[in-house]
């Protein structure tokens, strides 16, 4: 299908963006990488009055580390996540996630701001940001707001983003020596949206005691799903096969997955248990891994 006719404006700065947003009205849509938006336009699933292209705004770019925070500009491309040394050093789960996101052509254009703003329930990055306890930085004409990722995502394709606001950056707490980060997923084909996926961020002491754990699933609910019971089951105790089993058991209360074309809720619950073991297994003591 073809797009409906619509306006297009490219802005060079946030100030210009606010002006154009005012002029364009609430029916205008922000365009960044366009990797989901353009397809919905082609299907005529949305008919915005116009597109406002923010890809030339310098303030939305760049990856930097300040103090204990890794800042990712909203225009950071998925491909950048996969090759940026700061990302690899300070938020390795994002570097691991990058090759799982669609295909190279999409990774070269798609942005993290766009992915987070869309909040696709099967997308990797929202789950990673919740697992990392990142902060989503949003801005509007009236100033900046900082929203914890866990509060930012509010359901199926729904976020805390208000009319007139855009995501400008994501602040990620940098990894510590205790950090254990991993992302695993099951996809029918490489690059597909996950049938089920898990972003796990743990703090593990030298004696393998789990000080903190955030297990966040994707593709098994209406958004990035924090498995609170499973996270609690792991926390404050040594990581063992038994605690992993306890975390798997707790998922029954954590997740209420809907069915999709791949299968029903039971399939999703099962895959979530499998992914829990696969994600955490490598962090076990070597002797226990072999067993």
């Amino acid at each position: 299908m073809k797009w409906p006719a619509m306006g297009y404006a490219r802005v060079e700065s946030l100030d210009e963006l606010w002006q154009v947003l005012d002029a364009a009205g609430p029916e205008a849509q922000i365009l960044a990488g366009g990797q989901s938006l353009l397809a919905t336009l082609s299907f005529r699933l949305s008919e915005p009055s116009g597109l406002i292209d923010i890809t030339r705004i310098p303030a939305l770019r760049g990856v930097s580390v300040t103090g204990g925070t890794l800042r990712l500009g909203a225009l950071t491309r998925h491909a950048d996540l996969g090759r940026d040394p700061l990302v690899a050093a300070h938020a390795p789960i994002l570097a691991q996630a990058a090759p799982l996101i669609a295909h190279p052509a999409i990774r070269n254009r798609g942005t993290i701001g766009g992915s987070l703003a869309l909040a696709d329930p099967a997308a990797e990055l929202p789950a990673c940001m919740v697992a990392l306890d990142a902060t989503i930085v949003v801005a509007s004409r009236s100033g900046e707001r900082r929203v914890p990722a866990a509060d930012f995502f509010q359901g199926l394709f729904t976020t805390d983003l208000q009319p007139g606001e855009i995501i400008t950056a994501v602040d990620v707490p940098v990894a510590t020596p205790a950090s254990r980060q991993t992302i695993v997923e099951v996809t029918r084909r490489s690059g597909d949206y996950a049938m089920a996926g898990l972003a796990a961020v743990l703090a593990v002491t030298a004696d393998r005691t789990v000080d903190a754990a955030r297990l966040v699933f994707f593709g098994v609910g209406s958004g990035a799903e924090i498995a609170r019971g499973a996270s609690v089951a792991l926390t404050g105790t040594k990581l063992t096969q038994a605690t992993i089993a306890a975390a798997q058991g707790a998922l029954a209360g954590d997740l209420d997955p809907p069915g999709d074309l791949h299968g029903g809720p039971e399939l999703k619950r099962h895959l979530a248990r499998v992914l829990t073991a696969r994600a955490l297994g490598p962090f076990l003591a070597p002797a226990e891994q072999a067993a």
Partner: peptide, 14 residues
């Protein structure tokens, strides 16, 4: 032969 059908055949899911 989807994952769903294989896991059903295995009795992993009903």
């Amino acid at each position: 032969f989807t994952p769903d059908r294989i896991l059903r055949a295995l009795g992993t899911i009903a």
